[in-house]
Design a protein around this nucleic acid. Sequence first.
DNA 1: CTAAACTATGAAGTGAACTCTAAGGCAAGC
DNA 2: GCTTGCCTTAGAGTTCACTTCATAGTTTAG
Lengths: 137, 137
Amino acid sequence: MKIQELADLMGLTPHTIRFYEKEGLLDSRHIQREKNNYRNYSDEAIERLRLIKKFQGIGCSLAELKTILQDHDMNTRTNQEVIEWILQKINEIERKKEEYDHMLVTLNWMLTYRKLLNDDPQQAEAMMAELRVRMNF
Amino acid sequence: MKIQELADLMGLTPHTIRFYEKEGLLDSRHIQREKNNYRNYSDEAIERLRLIKKFQGIGCSLAELKTILQDHDMNTRTNQEVIEWILQKINEIERKKEEYDHMLVTLNWMLTYRKLLNDDPQQAEAMMAELRVRMNF
DNA sequence: CTAAACTATGAAGTGAACTCTAAGGCAAGC
DNA sequence: GCTTGCCTTAGAGTTCACTTCATAGTTTAG
């Protein structure tokens, strides 16, 4: 399979696939060279890219992925270690969600204030005064 | 007020404050030059940086902030426009939260599988087979 | 008076994940 | 046989929000 074919199949660009190779996420199991030096991809390449996408989907950086794939290839990690890694990832994501919740709290206050400003400007000013104290805003 | 004083007050570095100036987030209302060419900050600068922090806290980029501050300075936006902007921001953040929820679903499946692998490897394999179909994993 | 601490400037570096460019080789359709 | 459109490479550019660097002038504490 040539690079464009694989790219279309996986919804990537040839650039990106070559970039992954350069970053060490693909190796000789996935790519062989034809005599014209074109890359020829095996079916394993498809599996590999699927795996990459899956882990990207759970918020892994390419650097992290490189380690994960190495461990995966060499069967380095015990089940317990993988479980701990997953728990840590879950934690990470939950912290990020909390950050967004903070943003939403602020935005909702702003929204309440702005809506009040339409209906009852005086009360809006009172609210703003309180907010200034409570939120340093 | 000199730059270090302002930086300490706001929890920023002098570098960052100069950077904001270069980016056009601060102007002559906030900064004057003394005869030795040192920057002298007015109290308005404090308010300005507070505003910047607040909007950064709700996920605004500096580019976006530049527009927001311009509108703020010139009183360009109507209340209704601001309300719509807030609603859009809320939407944006909720979409990002949903993305994280997707990640969490995947991670929790992975976790369940790995835990099962300890206790009941056969059932774990059955689960994996089903996951492969359902999640393309 | 001197040394430390502060100020100024412009430019380059960081990291993540691509994305694009330039310059050229190979292949398939007309 | 010529054009179009793949393919190759190394390396630079992109975006964001700073951060660091190099160099030099100014102020202040002892």
